[in-house]
Amino acid sequence: KEFRPGDKVVLPPYGVGVVAGIAQRSVSGVSRAYYQVDFPGSRSKAYVPVEAPHSVGLRKAL
């Protein structure tokens, strides 16, 4: 896996977040693995496909 729990990442347009782990989510009846990204200071979460994280701009924070 490219990202691990605890990694600081950037996800446009949300900003800097932390990978909380990998979650299985069902979309249109198909279960897939997603990185769960939490954003400190907020209750917001984002789910990014493990198979294509760069397709939505997910990258490691510098």
Rank of each mutant, 00 (worst) to 15 (best):
residue 45 K to F: 09
residue 46 A to M: 11
residue 32 R to C: 10
residue 39 F to C: 15
residue 3 F to T: 01
residue 20 A to L: 10
residue 8 K to P: 07
residue 62 L to K: 10
residue 54 H to E: 15
residue 21 G to Y: 03
residue 42 S to W: 10
residue 12 P to L: 07
residue 19 V to G: 00
residue 42 S to R: 12
residue 41 G to E: 12
residue 38 D to Y: 14
residue 50 V to C: 05
residue 41 G to Y: 10
residue 16 V to H: 11
residue 30 V to N: 05
residue 20 A to K: 11
residue 29 G to D: 04
residue 23 A to Q: 12
residue 15 G to K: 03
residue 60 K to D: 12
residue 46 A to K: 10
residue 41 G to K: 10
residue 20 A to D: 04
residue 28 S to G: 14
residue 50 V to R: 01
residue 57 G to H: 05
residue 52 A to W: 09
residue 44 S to V: 15
residue 62 L to R: 10
residue 2 E to W: 08
residue 34 Y to M: 05
residue 31 S to W: 13
residue 43 R to D: 13
residue 5 P to M: 10
residue 23 A to E: 12
residue 22 I to G: 00
residue 39 F to D: 01
residue 59 R to V: 12
residue 10 V to W: 13
residue 58 L to V: 04
residue 17 G to T: 00
residue 37 V to R: 00
residue 2 E to S: 12
residue 40 P to G: 08
residue 4 R to L: 12
residue 36 Q to C: 11
residue 60 K to R: 09
residue 24 Q to W: 13
residue 31 S to V: 14
residue 26 S to F: 12
residue 3 F to D: 02
residue 25 R to L: 14
residue 46 A to N: 02
residue 37 V to M: 01
residue 30 V to K: 09
residue 13 P to E: 06
residue 21 G to M: 09
residue 40 P to M: 09
residue 45 K to S: 15
residue 23 A to W: 09
residue 23 A to V: 15
residue 5 P to A: 11
residue 4 R to H: 12
residue 23 A to R: 13
residue 18 V to R: 08
residue 58 L to W: 00
residue 1 K to Q: 14
residue 34 Y to F: 11
residue 14 Y to Q: 03
residue 17 G to M: 01
residue 43 R to T: 13
residue 36 Q to W: 06
residue 25 R to S: 07
residue 40 P to C: 14
residue 1 K to I: 14
residue 38 D to I: 13
residue 30 V to M: 07
residue 23 A to K: 13
residue 47 Y to M: 07
residue 36 Q to R: 07
residue 3 F to A: 02
residue 40 P to T: 06
residue 17 G to K: 00
residue 50 V to S: 02
residue 27 V to G: 05
residue 53 P to I: 09
residue 53 P to N: 05
residue 8 K to R: 12
residue 28 S to D: 15
residue 30 V to A: 06
residue 46 A to G: 04
residue 14 Y to R: 04
residue 18 V to A: 02
residue 7 D to V: 04
residue 54 H to K: 06
residue 7 D to G: 02
residue 18 V to N: 03
residue 29 G to T: 02
residue 57 G to T: 03
residue 47 Y to D: 02
residue 16 V to E: 11
residue 62 L to V: 15
residue 35 Y to K: 00
residue 27 V to L: 08
residue 37 V to W: 00
residue 36 Q to N: 03
residue 45 K to A: 12
residue 49 P to L: 08
residue 3 F to N: 01
residue 58 L to A: 04
residue 51 E to W: 11
residue 10 V to R: 05
residue 1 K to C: 15
residue 56 V to Q: 08
residue 4 R to C: 14
residue 16 V to L: 15
residue 9 V to E: 00
residue 41 G to C: 15
residue 49 P to D: 10
residue 24 Q to Y: 13
residue 32 R to L: 10
residue 35 Y to P: 03
residue 11 L to G: 00
residue 46 A to H: 10
residue 37 V to T: 00
residue 58 L to D: 03
residue 49 P to V: 03
residue 38 D to S: 11
residue 10 V to H: 08
residue 19 V to H: 00
residue 2 E to P: 09
residue 36 Q to M: 13
residue 10 V to Y: 14
residue 8 K to I: 15
residue 43 R to A: 13
residue 18 V to I: 12
residue 28 S to P: 02
residue 55 S to F: 07
residue 16 V to M: 12
residue 31 S to G: 06
residue 62 L to M: 12
residue 8 K to T: 09
residue 59 R to W: 02
residue 5 P to R: 10
residue 9 V to S: 01
residue 46 A to V: 13
residue 26 S to G: 05
residue 11 L to I: 05
residue 4 R to F: 12
residue 2 E to V: 11
residue 49 P to M: 04
residue 6 G to P: 02
residue 47 Y to N: 02
residue 15 G to E: 01
residue 55 S to C: 15
residue 49 P to N: 04
residue 27 V to M: 08
residue 47 Y to S: 02
residue 49 P to F: 04
residue 21 G to F: 04
residue 30 V to I: 10
residue 47 Y to P: 00
residue 36 Q to V: 15
residue 38 D to W: 14
residue 60 K to G: 15
residue 14 Y to N: 02
residue 23 A to F: 14
residue 35 Y to G: 02
residue 25 R to D: 04
residue 32 R to D: 06
residue 34 Y to H: 05
residue 52 A to T: 08
residue 11 L to Y: 07
residue 15 G to T: 01
residue 22 I to Q: 03
residue 44 S to M: 15
residue 49 P to K: 02
residue 35 Y to H: 02
residue 9 V to R: 00
residue 52 A to E: 11
residue 25 R to G: 09
residue 46 A to R: 10
residue 31 S to D: 09
residue 36 Q to S: 04
residue 8 K to F: 13
residue 18 V to P: 00
residue 57 G to M: 04
residue 29 G to E: 03
residue 2 E to K: 09
residue 5 P to C: 12
residue 10 V to G: 01
residue 28 S to F: 07
residue 59 R to K: 11
residue 32 R to F: 06
residue 25 R to N: 10
residue 28 S to Y: 05
residue 35 Y to L: 06
residue 41 G to R: 10
residue 43 R to M: 15
residue 36 Q to L: 11
residue 30 V to S: 07
residue 4 R to K: 12
residue 15 G to A: 02
residue 9 V to T: 02
residue 34 Y to L: 01
residue 61 A to P: 05
residue 45 K to G: 05
residue 55 S to G: 07
residue 46 A to W: 05
residue 4 R to Q: 12
residue 13 P to W: 07
residue 28 S to E: 14
residue 39 F to I: 03
residue 10 V to F: 14
residue 38 D to M: 12
residue 42 S to D: 09
residue 17 G to A: 02
residue 56 V to L: 06
residue 59 R to I: 12
residue 47 Y to T: 02
residue 58 L to P: 03
residue 10 V to E: 08
residue 29 G to Q: 02
residue 45 K to Y: 10
residue 50 V to G: 01
residue 26 S to T: 15
residue 52 A to G: 08
residue 17 G to W: 00
residue 39 F to A: 00
residue 16 V to R: 09
residue 45 K to V: 15
residue 15 G to F: 04
residue 34 Y to S: 00
residue 5 P to N: 06
residue 26 S to N: 13
residue 59 R to D: 07
residue 41 G to V: 08
residue 3 F to R: 01
residue 44 S to A: 13
residue 36 Q to K: 09
residue 42 S to M: 11
residue 51 E to P: 03
residue 2 E to G: 10
residue 40 P to E: 10
residue 52 A to D: 15
residue 60 K to L: 13
residue 45 K to T: 15
residue 9 V to G: 00
residue 40 P to K: 07
residue 6 G to L: 03
residue 22 I to C: 04
residue 19 V to S: 02
residue 48 V to G: 00
residue 61 A to K: 06
residue 49 P to I: 04
residue 20 A to F: 06
residue 60 K to N: 11
residue 3 F to Y: 06
residue 46 A to E: 06
residue 6 G to Q: 02
residue 54 H to A: 11
residue 46 A to F: 08
residue 38 D to K: 09
residue 26 S to H: 08
residue 3 F to P: 02
residue 51 E to I: 07
residue 60 K to A: 10
residue 1 K to Y: 15
residue 10 V to N: 05
residue 4 R to S: 11
residue 62 L to Y: 10
residue 62 L to S: 14
residue 12 P to K: 05
residue 40 P to H: 09
residue 17 G to N: 01
residue 42 S to K: 11
residue 32 R to Y: 08
residue 42 S to L: 12
residue 56 V to D: 06
residue 14 Y to A: 02
residue 17 G to R: 00
residue 20 A to Q: 09
residue 19 V to I: 15
residue 43 R to W: 09
residue 59 R to T: 12
residue 34 Y to V: 03
residue 55 S to Q: 09
residue 45 K to L: 08
residue 7 D to P: 00
residue 57 G to Y: 03
residue 21 G to Q: 08
residue 15 G to P: 01
residue 26 S to K: 12
residue 37 V to P: 02
residue 4 R to D: 04
residue 12 P to W: 12
residue 20 A to W: 04
residue 43 R to H: 13
residue 44 S to P: 09
residue 45 K to Q: 11
residue 51 E to G: 08
residue 28 S to W: 04
residue 62 L to P: 14
residue 26 S to W: 14
residue 48 V to A: 06
residue 23 A to M: 15
residue 9 V to C: 04
residue 46 A to T: 06
residue 53 P to M: 06
residue 35 Y to F: 08
residue 59 R to H: 15
residue 33 A to N: 11
residue 57 G to R: 06
residue 11 L to D: 01
residue 51 E to D: 14
residue 47 Y to V: 02
residue 61 A to T: 06
residue 22 I to W: 01
residue 41 G to W: 07
residue 37 V to H: 01
residue 54 H to D: 14
residue 7 D to R: 02
residue 8 K to M: 13
residue 13 P to T: 06
residue 16 V to C: 15
residue 30 V to R: 09
residue 48 V to F: 04
residue 6 G to N: 03
residue 22 I to Y: 04
residue 17 G to Q: 00
residue 8 K to G: 03
residue 51 E to H: 06
residue 10 V to L: 08
residue 17 G to E: 00
residue 32 R to V: 11
residue 51 E to R: 04
residue 15 G to M: 03
residue 51 E to F: 06
residue 14 Y to M: 15
residue 5 P to W: 04
residue 24 Q to T: 13
residue 61 A to V: 13
residue 58 L to N: 03
residue 1 K to T: 14
residue 57 G to I: 05
residue 49 P to S: 07
residue 55 S to R: 09
residue 59 R to Y: 06
residue 43 R to S: 13
residue 50 V to E: 02
residue 35 Y to N: 03
residue 40 P to Q: 07
residue 3 F to L: 05
residue 59 R to G: 07
residue 37 V to D: 02
residue 23 A to L: 15
residue 57 G to W: 02
residue 53 P to L: 05
residue 10 V to P: 01
residue 48 V to N: 00
residue 2 E to N: 09
residue 61 A to H: 12
residue 4 R to E: 10
residue 60 K to Y: 06
residue 13 P to Y: 08
residue 59 R to N: 06
residue 14 Y to V: 02
residue 31 S to M: 14
residue 21 G to R: 12
residue 52 A to I: 06
residue 54 H to M: 08
residue 53 P to R: 05
residue 57 G to S: 04
residue 48 V to Y: 03
residue 31 S to E: 11
residue 39 F to E: 02
residue 62 L to T: 14
residue 5 P to D: 04
residue 56 V to K: 09
residue 33 A to D: 14
residue 40 P to W: 08
residue 48 V to S: 01
residue 23 A to T: 14
residue 51 E to S: 09
residue 10 V to D: 04
residue 1 K to P: 14
residue 54 H to I: 06
